[in-house]
Design a protein around this nucleic acid. Structure first.
Lengths: 347, 347
DNA sequence: AAATAGCACTCGGGTGGTTTGAGTGCTAAC
DNA sequence: GTTAGCACTCAAACCACCCGAGTGCTATTT
């Protein structure tokens, strides 16, 4: 790919920024008068021809202004916005909101989604933190009523799973505590794998419960990620060229099918280093439904222990310069939260 | 309101049903040929004039067919669909899906939302079951790490709350169990009110924890309802006259603001007897955003103990005859589930 | 009296042609 | 290399027209 002259570079950036703001194709005249350039429209036109040939710009039709291509957006992102920081006042506002929220996963996720949505004017997505490798720390069995037993599993890494088990015969709380005690001694710090290979002697009731625990454990292992929180759906409709027709419908359809959404988030987030923000422009990699969308994704938490993904799904013509720093900043906040709340302190 | 002749009644119903299917204004000629009526178009026109004057029908413009008014839809619902049953095969399919799902609140809610959405072609809403009066059944304190303590509160009615508490000093699991033991003895079966008025002697650590428990209890009391699950967002876009412009945006905005959505659901559900289905047509009662929408709502669970709300939000021109039975049926299933899983058996 | 045939009338929506103007690419002059 | 000038393009807006579905009314039939 050929190099860009300084002038080409700045014209390109101007065009893209202007288009992101206005949503209208940008013409040469519009540029000079709006940004007080001291070069003529003709010169700009010449450069635009070059930029078009290089694949950064595109004309919707012959007698219209220029519009960025996917390549153009990528250039913008790579050049300017990836490392930008959120302005301090904004940081403080956001931080303040988190400090005020109740210390609860559900609250944090909801708030994160809401902050992302409002700052990016797009759809935000936040997955609940998820333990990457599951080791049982503590199991508690609580009799609720009849044959229903509540099992609470605390994992290393701080995740908590609660699950009702239905057992064959009603059992007293004392007996349950006894079983829990025994199970805890044997399984503390083990993964489901290791538990599976172990062979202890249990009586009928115990192995009954044990079986249920195993099923539950396995389930935890493959439910690759918690709830997905989202917010800002209505932002989608505010975008001119989206409000109608199938593009908005595509996005909503994606949200309806949690599984493929999860897959999408997961696969892109996996390519993202910790602290990095990954920008996927125009559904790269076969996500046909997202042709006209971009995603800004980041991971938070402690990779290998407990982590989650968050990000924003919006029109390709998105305010990257605001969105990217916001995503990064919120990711950092959530990372801190995970660190403070779920990770074993070094005693 | 004047009475309708038999013929007027059946013409009205035909018009409304036809409009619901086609979305197009219904003309007199269209009716006769489509439904093989042996009366002439002129007669129908005469009756239509009457129905229009009575407020059941409306003309989008002079030379167009008729379209139902809100009043018309209400008539349809009141006349035919309220007591209808879902066809058996459909019932079985749905039931089967529930039987196959994992016995987990999250799964049930998700499935219910999905079933409702797909059968009604609209947006479905399901709130997690919620205990109407909260009495502590069992409290468990589990040390996770450092100053973080996991509290698990099992309520009468089966709801479970887990919450991390941060305490002043690290404490051993034994000590925690001791405290939990003591707390359990005193508070079993009590509401937060009753606990508040009690006065026992506690040491520093205990009252520290106690305070946190109280805060948590109060929070549970006023968080009027659990998570709201929804599904079928993309259905909204499939409706012709909605896909564009502000109507769809309004609905999405409502979904973004969980609080007002919750309020809306709550207030309408409160007017609904158990086993009943409440149909709100055209945002009655000041819900301006819902002018063009209808909601079909029902409650499930055991009123006074543990219950939730579920329903469908869709265009006023909605397939009520399919939606209403579906909502009722799913509500019944969820009621059974609540009964089976959360309600104290009569031993 | 109720139902119907007949008919004039209305008006939204589709069709096709014209105009407008923003924006271009090119060429020639600076 | 830059710019002024200019012919050219083409989507969108505008307009006039027509078409036909559907109406309400009236006169006629049952």
């Amino acid at each position: 790919m050929a190099e860009l002259s300084d002038r080409q570079r700045s014209i390109l950036l101007l065009v893209i920024r202007d288009y992101i703001e206005s949503g209208l194709p940008v013409g040469s005249a519009h540029l000079v008068e709006n940004y007080k350039l001291n070069i003529s429209t003709a010169t700009i036109r010449n450069e635009m021809v070059a930029l078009t040939e290089l694949g950064y710009l595109r004309q919707p039709h012959t007698s219209a202004g220029r519009v960025p291509t996917e390549e153009g957006y990528r250039f913008l992102v790579s050049q300017t916005t990836l490392q930008a920081e959120l302005p301090e006042p904004v940081q403080n506002t956001i931080l303040h909101q988190f400090h005020q929220s109740r210390p609860e996963v559900d609250q944090w996720m909801t708030l994160a989604a809401s902050v992302l949505a409002s700052h990016s004017q797009a759809i935000s997505l936040v997955t609940a933190p998820f333990a990457d490798r599951n080791r049982v720390k503590h199991i508690e069995l609580i009799s609720t009523q009849g044959r229903q037993v509540l099992m609470v599993m605390v994992m290393y890494g701080g995740a908590v799973n609660q699950q009702f088990l239905t057992i064959a015969e009603p059992v007293s709380q004392e007996k349950l505590s006894e079983v829990a005690q025994k199970v805890n001694i044997h399984f503390r710090g083990k993964t489901s794998e290791e538990i599976h290979h172990a062979n202890f002697h249990f009586d009928a009731l115990e192995s009954d419960i044990l079986h249920l625990i195993m099923v539950e454990l396995n389930r935890v292992d493959d439910k690759g990620g918690g709830h997905i929180y989202y917010d800002g759906l209505s932002n989608m409709m505010a975008v001119k060229d989206f409000s109608g027709s199938d593009d908005a419908a595509n996005a909503l359809r994606l949200l309806d099918e949690r599984t493929s959404l999860r897959e999408l988030i997961q696969s892109t987030a996996n390519n993202t280093g910790p602290g990095d923000v990954n920008v996927v422009i125009g559904g790269e990699g076969g996500w046909h439904e997202l042709k006209k969308y971009s995603m800004v994704l980041a991971r938070y938490g402690v990779p290998g222990y407990i982590s989650g993904t968050l990000g924003v799904l919006g029109p390709m013509r998105m305010a990257y310069s605001r969105t990217i720093p916001t995503v990064r900043y919120v990711a950092n906040i959530l990372s801190d939260i995970v660190l403070d709340n779920f990770i074993e302190q070094s005693n």
